[in-house]
Design a binder for these strands. Structure first.
Length: 446
DNA sequence: TGAAATGTTGGGGCG
DNA sequence: ACGCCCCAACATTTC
C-alpha cells in the first residue's frame, strides 16, 4: 500500500484543471484532500464577512465531491501534524506566490504546482504598465486545462471538523438576499451561460450596471472553483473579456512583485499625501447615503448582494478617494469585508489604480463625475431605481441629481430631500476643485 | 477605464 | 448681398 499524498486545497476548490490534484492522482498514491482554516485575528486581510459566507457554502459543495478533511490552526503546524498522522508521502499544493510557499516547501516533504494563474509571476518580467504586460502574456503559450482526474483514489479518512465548526457564517444574517450559488458546478454553469448569451455583447454591455452584461464569475474565480485557464480557453473568441482576465493576471503579478501594496502605495511618494480621516463621511459612503444616486446604488448593491458592478466600483471608488479625499485603504477594507469576490490582488490593484498611486494608474486629475457617469451608464435609471427605491418615481431627468429637481417634482415623486433621501454630502464641482488643489499643493512640496 | 476649459468652425438669423 | 453675432458641434488642451 502506497503512502497517501495530501492535496492541500486553498483558493482552488475544484477538481478540474487542478494540477496538484492531477499530479497526485497520476502518482498512484491514495489522496487525502485537506482544507485548513487558519484565522489570525489581528491580520488585516483575514477573509471578510461576505467572503466567509461564500467559503462556507463553497466548502459544503466541495465536500459533496470529496472526502475533504477540514482542520483549523496555523497552516504549517496543521500540515505537519497531518503528515505525521497519516504518514504522508508529501503535500501537494498550488503556489500562492507569497512567502508562505517557501516556508512550506522548506519545512515539509512537499511539491508546489502552478494552478491559479495563466502564467507564473517571474515567467514574464515585471511590468508596471498593462499594455506591454498584456502583449507579453499573449506571447506565452497557455496550455489547455486539465480534465477532472478520471480516477480518484481517496486515502483512509482521518478526523475532520464539519464546515459548521469553522463558524464562517456571520451572526447577523444580512446575507439572506445573496443571489449566489458557490461551488464548481455552478461556476461551470455560470461560464456556460455567459458564453451562450452575454459574451457576444460583453464589450458594449459590460459598462451598463442595469444590464446583465458581465460574467458574474469573479467570486467563483477568486475561490478557484474555476481556473483562469479554463476561462481563457473557453472565451478566446471574446477579446474584450479576455482582456479582463488579463487584468486579473496583471494584478496578481504585481502583488507577487510588490507584496506590501495592500496597505502601502506602490508609488511611495503617495505616503505623504494628505488624505482626510473623516469617519462620519466614510460611514455615509459605506451605507449608500451620500446623496449621489449612482454612488448610493452601488454601495447598497454591495451591501445587499455582496457584489458591485465594475463600472460602479470605479465610480464609488473615485468618489471616496477624490471627492471625499478619504484614504483608498479605507475603501479597500470596506470592499474586503463586503465583497463575496474580495481578492487581495484585484482589490489592491483596483484601489491603487483609482487613487492614482498604483501601476498604470489613473492620473490624479482624472476624477469621475458621478452625475455624468450615471447619465451615461444608467440612462434609464434601471440600476438606481433597483437599489435606491426611494427615488423610483423621480423622472429620469433628475434621477442622477435629485437636488436639481424643483420642490413640485420632488413632492410628486414622494421625496423629501434630507428626510427620505439625503442631500448631497459634497458639491461635486467644489470637491473636484479642492481635490485638484490638494494634489497641486502636495506635488509642489515633494 | 474622465471631464472641464478652451479653441475652432460653420450655418443661420438679422440688421 | 454682406458682415456681424451667436452658438451648437466638434477638436484640442488642460487639469
Amino acid at each position: 500500500m502506497k503512502k497517501p499524498i495530501i492535496v492541500w486545497f486553498q483558493n482552488d476548490l475544484r477538481l478540474s484543471d487542478h494540477p496538484a490534484l492531477d499530479a497526485a492522482a497520476k502518482s498512484g498514491h491514495p489522496i487525502l484532500p485537506v482544507y485548513i482554516c487558519s484565522p489570525q485575528d489581528d491580520h488585516p486581510w483575514e477573509p471578510g464577512a461576505a467572503s466567509r459566507w461564500w467559503l462556507h457554502y463553497s466548502l459544503l459543495a466541495f465536500k459533496k465531491e470529496t472526502p475533504l478533511v477540514i482542520r483549523k490552526g496555523p497552516i504549517l503546524s496543521a500540515l505537519k501534524k497531518l503528515v505525521r498522522e497519516v504518514d504522508a508521502e508529501a503535500v501537494y499544493f498550488h503556489y500562492q506566490y507569497n512567502s508562505q510557499d517557501t516556508e512550506i516547501l522548506a519545512e515539509l516533504p512537499s511539491l508546489a504546482f502552478h494552478g491559479n494563474l495563466l502564467c507564473p509571476p517571474g515567467e514574464i518580467r515585471t511590468y508596471q504598465v498593462f499594455t506591454p504586460f498584456f502583449n507579453a502574456l499573449q506571447k506565452e503559450i497557455i496550455t489547455q486545462p486539465l480534465p477532472k482526474p478520471a480516477q480518484l483514489r481517496w486515502a483512509k479518512r482521518v478526523p475532520s471538523l464539519a464546515v459548521g465548526d469553522l463558524k464562517l457564517l456571520p451572526r447577523i444574517p444580512w446575507y439572506k438576499e445573496f443571489p449566489w450559488k458557490p461551488g464548481e458546478d455552478y461556476a461551470q454553469q455560470t461560464l456556460k451561460r455567459f458564453l451562450k448569451s452575454g459574451a457576444k455583447n460583453y464589450a458594449k454591455a459590460r459598462d451598463y450596471p442595469g444590464l446583465a452584461g458581465t460574467s458574474l464569475l469573479s467570486p467563483h474565480l477568486h475561490f478557484g472553483e474555476i481556473s483562469p485557464r479554463q476561462i481563457w480557453h473557453a472565451a478566446k473568441k471574446y477579446p474584450a473579456y479576455i482582456r479582463q482576465i488579463a487584468w486579473r493576471e496583471f494584478s496578481y503579478h504585481l502583488l507577487a512583485a510588490f507584496p506590501k501594496t495592500p496597505l502601502s502605495p506602490l508609488r511611495e511618494n503617495f505616503r505623504t499625501f494628505p488624505w482626510k480621516k473623516t469617519p462620519r463621511t466614510l460611514r455615509l459612503w459605506q451605507k449608500g447615503m451620500t446623496g449621489f444616486p449612482i454612488v448610493d446604488a452601488g454601495m447598497r448593491q454591495l451591501w445587499h448582494t455582496g457584489w458591485m458592478h465594475n463600472r460602479v466600483r470605479m465610480i464609488v471608488a473615485s468618489f471616496l478617494v477624490k471627492d471625499l479625499l478619504i484614504p483608498w485603504q479605507d475603501g479597500a477594507k470596506w470592499f474586503w469585508d463586503t465583497l463575496v469576490d474580495a481578492d487581495l490582488a484585484n482589490n489592491t490593484f483596483g484601489w491603487q489604480w483609482v487613487a492614482g498611486c498604483g501601476a498604470d494608474a489613473a492620473p490624479y486629475f482624472r476624477i469621475f463625475n458621478p452625475i455624468l457617469q450615471g447619465e451615461k451608464f444608467d440612462p434609464k435609471g434601471n440600476y438606481i431605481r433597483r437599489f435606491v427605491p426611494e427615488l423610483k418615481n423621480l423622472p429620469d431627468k433628475f434621477l442622477h441629481a435629485p437636488w436639481m429637481a424643483s420642490p413640485e417634482v420632488l413632492q410628486k415623486a414622494g421625496i423629501k430631500l434630507g428626510v427620505t433621501y439625503p442631500k448631497p454630502v459634497v458639491d461635486h464641482a467644489q470637491a473636484r476643485k479642492q481635490a485638484l488643489e490638494a494634489f497641486h499643493r502636495w506635488q509642489k512640496k515633494y
